[in-house]
């Protein structure tokens, strides 16, 4: 049973991140996920200090607030003339430093260490379950990530057209009267919610990887946004299944193996994609020359 829960959690994370990640890759903001997953640390610590418990709800709230602040600050500095990648770098490293200092100042004697906050372990998911009315209804992580996935699916399907235009041509989106800034923050909100919901249970690295690697792979395989989202979900789920068994075989970290499998799939697409693959393009060039 625990195998099922771990794979399910991995697949849910992969689907949530795959949906949101496609838009990030298209909007050239792939590093945002990395930034948010680091910068939520002070939010988690502050929430912990205020509430005094390791209750996930408070931590999620604190993390989500800081996630939005991160996005806001990045946007602010970018608009005042700093290049966007540099403003991402400045903001998330500063917040992360604040978080590390808070941890070492206040929580030295309390049960909250950096590793467990930042690098949640997917292998422990099945043992952290919720009970309602005395009935065990499954791991907490599955419910949390499931809710995040539901939110993403609802919002993206409801505003699919708007998100699409905003990603490909923000100027045109503004011209036809779509509130571009609102959708920017909505997307960023979704990124922070899915990052935060997932990383506590599965670790930051899996979230950041699933946000970028499967969507980028899908980007090499298709020209349609809807197909790109579908492919990236399928690839993400496939890497979480294969990654789990690989980890069992090698006796290694599950999250790490899932990312490695996703990376391997990316490499395959990079070489053999029928439209954008390196090898097929070479063959095509030769054919044209001959």
């Amino acid at each position: 049973m625990s195998t099922f829960w771990i794979i399910l959690t991995g697949a849910l994370v992969a689907s949530t991140c795959g949906i949101v990640g496609c838009f990030l890759v298209l909007r050239k903001m792939a590093m945002i996920g990395d930034a948010i997953s680091h910068s939520v640390l002070p939010g988690i610590v502050i929430a912990f200090l205020i509430s005094g418990s390791r209750d996930s709800l408070f931590m999620l709230l604190g993390a989500a607030v800081i996630g939005l602040i991160t996005v806001f600050l990045i946007q602010l500095f970018h608009q005042s003339g700093v290049q966007s990648d540099a403003s991402i770098g400045v903001v998330f490293t500063a917040l992360f430093a604040v978080g590390v200092i808070l941890v070492s100042m206040y929580t030295r004697n309390i049960d909250l260490d950096l590793d467990c906050v930042l690098y949640g372990e997917i292998a422990y998911v099945p043992w952290n379950t919720i009970e309602i009315g005395g009935v065990d209804i499954g791991p907490k992580a599955v419910w949390g990530i499931g809710l995040a996935l539901l939110l993403c699916v609802i919002l993206i399907t409801a505003f699919y057209k708007q998100f699409k235009i905003c990603s490909f041509d923000p100027a045109m989106a503004a011209a036809v009267g779509i509130p571009v800034a609102l959708f920017h923050y909505l997307l960023m909100g979704l990124v922070s919610v899915s990052t935060v919901a997932s990383f506590e249970s599965v670790g930051a690295i899996l979230v950041v990887g699933m946000l970028v690697v499967p969507p980028a792979t899908a980007y090499l395989l298709t020209e349609r946004l809807s197909r790109m989202i579908l492919i990236s979900i399928v690839l993400g789920c496939a890497s979480s299944v294969i990654g789990y068994y690989l980890a069992r075989m090698l006796d290694a970290s599950i999250a790490g193996s899932m990312i490695c499998v996703a990376g391997g799939l990316f490499l395959l697409a990079l070489l053999f994609s029928p439209t954008h693959g390196v090898i097929f393009r070479k063959i095509q060039q030769k054919r044209l020359l001959a």
Partner: peptide, 23 residues
């Protein structure tokens, strides 16, 4: 060699290498 932009390439390499490192 592909149409993937630099930010995605950075993120891909970062996570895959780090994942490999964790393994």
């Amino acid at each position: 060699h592909t149409r993937i932009k630099q930010d995605s390439a950075l993120a891909i390499v970062l996570t895959v290498f780090f994942g490999l490192g964790i393994v």
